[in-house]
Nucleic acid binder design. Structure first.
Lengths: 340, 340
DNA sequence: CCTGCTATTGTTTGCGCTAACAGCCGCCAG
DNA sequence: CTGGCGGCTGTTAGCGCAAACAATAGCAGG
């Protein structure tokens, strides 16, 4: 009943399956997409033919014909710091059941790369785009606005989104941490962070942090920046640098948990009294912290939930633009002393 | 000269640009792809029209017409352990200059998910596929073999590749580490690793490891497995469990650096003499180790280079199937004592 | 002024699939 | 007996673009 493979090295099309099973291409298409009525007998015949031939549908042709693409573009700055993989997990989790599929593009925090990643993705006409951050080049912004698909900007809500946004206020997060630190009685505070000129979220956290400091009549005693390399190691080095330059510093605010962890390990190795003599705090709430000898104070960035919600917005074929703000919780850990 | 946008909410096609610039669609296509001769004047006119309209080419149509897709599928088990992001970096680095673009799919170590990820990717007719591991379901194997595109299986070379392979021998890596440990005089050795039933590479390392032990007349004194959770924390917990169960163990071989790091931190916190009283080793050569108080012995998995070479094979439109073996170097760090 | 070329631009065709619509068949109500 | 309807299958017409080929213009050489 099923005819054998025709040409072994010819890539298969619907026609091959249709000929092998003796029905029209359209019927094969219907069977394979589970759409429209097809008798059980025909369905079986077609499925068997498709299976024995090893037919894999050509989505390119399908997408062109149906004007529908089950792809969602996800544009993120980096895969190497554990925060975006977690966002991805949230996205995949929700998209799983919807027939949509995420496609990742990485920008390395470079606006130019972001622009070309966006262009490339849009040229595949995805059903939606999820993109980290609110700051984009003019061209990027224009492309996204004109794409005619739902756009969700994630991570950050301090600014004006193109369309939808899901995230936290990094400015507020910085402020909150500063307030907690001040309330705990620390006064000589240093900042240690990334130099990345395009990590706007880290920048906003620092702004919020300094804002709260100045409201309390304080300013940063010292600051130290890095770029590249092993974050854990950089954390140690920067901490050492700061403490040798400014020995009287009593609090180290790190722009992320990884360098914070490095700093913490260094302080512990030096036998410093943490959090008595010196306190530390990071940002992100990374899982790694659970394994450290002492728990670093941090603030959860709600990564999983951000991913989930962003995906949900795309999947639900949204109506009006919406902004969803999440509220990170401060985890004091063991590196901020109790209120003095 | 350039006509204004026609319908603001209609997605643009070549025709729109062609009408706006007064030349044929074909000429527009040529300009935008930089192919064939076009006069400078025409080129300018077309580019301006495309720019002002905000035209983004439809790659779906382009791919269908040209039968060429500039996508390379990359199928990996996970993004959350720092090893695959580094492979991705190598891949992107090489693909950058070739016009090809990686598309990532994640399987979570599940054969069923791998199957559907492969199917999904192949249905977009990519120019090549890079896939982690040599073990795949029958269906996956069949799909890949029949796809008619270069397939590169990465990470592992202990087995029979479908087509091309780039990786290291994990069995040999395990063996080598065991030999180094034995040579250093350790005798009561325990293994601590992941339970993941489908992490074949971890399994092969353990096999090689035990093989070398038995050649020296030794067997594992204890073993401990985990799954999920913070690897660093798990490392601590497992180490504690092993050492309380088998106090006389003198070496801990971890299946990856992250749990190894956890174990190391625990041992140091206990004030154990490392590497005198007890030695430790992991696997992967992750950057994180550089920031630890003491350097864990490990073995580099050549991740960056594997990514680079795999990409190069795809980009170079390979002829004969090739297997490229890389050789990881043993980094003794500070947790194996010198030859006794 | 005509030939033969090159440089540039246009026309036709179809990639592989699906939307929309058009049969066909059998069966039941009127 | 006739009309109509539901279940199933087929036919037609593109989707938006690029390959292949066709056409045209301009120009040098004879």
């Amino acid at each position: 009943m099923i005819k054998p493979t025709p040409d072994p090295r010819h890539t298969l099309t619907l026609r091959d399956v249709s000929e092998a099973s003796g029905v029209s291409e359209m019927t094969v298409s219907r069977v394979l997409r589970n759409r429209g009525d097809v008798s059980a007998a025909t369905r079986e015949k077609v499925l068997e033919a498709a299976r024995t031939l090893g037919y894999v549908p050509n989505k390119i042709a399908g997408a062109l014909a149906s004007q529908r693409v089950n792809l969602v573009g996800v544009v993120i700055p980096s895969l190497s710091n554990m925060v975006f993989p977690e966002v991805m997990t949230g996205i995949s989790e929700v998209l799983e059941g919807t027939g949509l599929q995420p496609v990742v593009g990485v920008t390395n925090y470079l606006p130019d790369r972001e622009e070309s990643v966006i262009y490339e993705m849009l040229s595949w006409r995805p059903s939606g785009m999820i993109i980290a951050g609110l700051e984009h080049s003019t061209a990027s912004h224009a492309m996204l606005s004109r794409a005619g698909i739902p756009i969700v900007e994630i991570m950050d809500i301090d600014g004006a989104p193109i369309n939808h946004a899901v995230g936290i206020s990094h400015r507020r997060a910085g402020r909150q941490m500063a307030e907690a630190i001040i309330a705990a009685g620390y006064r000589r505070i240093a900042f240690l962070g990334t130099r990345m000129p395009n990590d706007f979220r880290a920048k906003k956290r620092l702004e919020g942090f300094e804002e709260a400091l100045s409201k309390a009549g304080l300013t940063l005693v010292d600051r130290e920046f890095y770029s590249g390399g092993s974050a854990l190691l950089k954390g140690r080095e920067m901490t050492e640098a700061v403490l040798s330059r400014s020995p009287d510093v009593d609090f180290l605010y790190f722009s992320n948990d990884m360098i914070g962890a490095g700093g913490l390990l260094w302080c512990l190795a030096q036998g410093l009294d943490v959090p008595g003599r010196i306190g530390l705090a990071g940002f992100n709430g990374v899982e790694l912290l659970d394994g450290l000898p002492r728990k670093l104070a941090t603030m959860d960035a709600c990564r999983l939930e951000i991913g989930r919600r962003a995906a949900r917005i795309i999947a639900d074929v949204p109506g009006a633009p919406q902004i969803e703000e999440l509220f990170p919780t401060l985890q004091r850990g063991d590196t901020i002393r109790s209120i003095s």
